[in-house]
Design a protein around this nucleic acid. Structure first.
Lengths: 107, 107
DNA sequence: CAAACATATAAGCACATACTTATACGATAG
DNA sequence: CTATCGTATAAGTATGTGCTTATATGTTTG
């Protein structure tokens, strides 16, 4: 049941271009055309990636006239984050790094 | 340079069957035939997935006579773990859960 | 040695998917 | 109102990929 969602997030983020689109939208709202200028693909390709990301809950849309602004929804990463955390305990080497992440978050 | 490796790990783990094979091998060494019995695909399919996982550094092989034993190498998850951590700070809701993970690791 | 076994590789196929160009649709501008 | 602009959708295509069956390779057994 929940595995399905996790599979979806994995599938959507496995494409390098689409993943890059998501990364570009983290903490930054951009219109489709602004986004397009960052990539070597056509506008329709961008729109298609955005639709896929939106469907997976990884991106949110805000309409304003003829413009469409998109930003990442980090909550959409939840299935992936949970998956990684499940196996993190088998991966002891970089625990310190993770603790640093938490420290930085507390500030 | 490092992005390439991250892309590889994403690509390899995006297939549900292959991801399930990896999960099955976490903390447990299994031969190819033992592994095969857990899945609804043929033995060659399993071998192909194992070769892919091995190439990505996600799995390790140990040969013993005509048997081949595989186990997950959690270190291979490093690129994915790092990617997730990069965006975790934008995802504040489940920090408590993450702290629980660390607590469990300390024990 | 020959047969059975465990696994890997080869070849082919069916299907998914990421891209393109062309076009539709709605909104603003002149 | 018409043209232009921003975005989405449609249709077609090329490539990737996960699977299968068949076969090769190496190992143990009798």
């Amino acid at each position: 049941m929940f595995g399905m969602i996790e599979a979806e997030v994995f599938r959507i983020l496995s494409d390098p271009t689409r993943r890059a689109v998501f990364e570009r939208l983290v903490g930054q709202e951009l219109s489709v055309s602004e986004l397009k200028d960052s990539f070597a693909v056509s506008q329709p390709a961008i729109s298609q990636h955005l639709a896929a990301l939106r469907n997976a809950g990884l991106v949110e849309e805000r309409r304003e006239g003829r413009f469409a602004y998109y930003k990442a929804n980090p909550n959409g990463l939840a299935p992936l984050v949970n998956w990684v955390d499940r196996y993190r305990s088998f991966w002891p080497e970089k625990v310190e790094k993770l603790k640093d992440v938490l420290k930085r978050m507390d500030r």
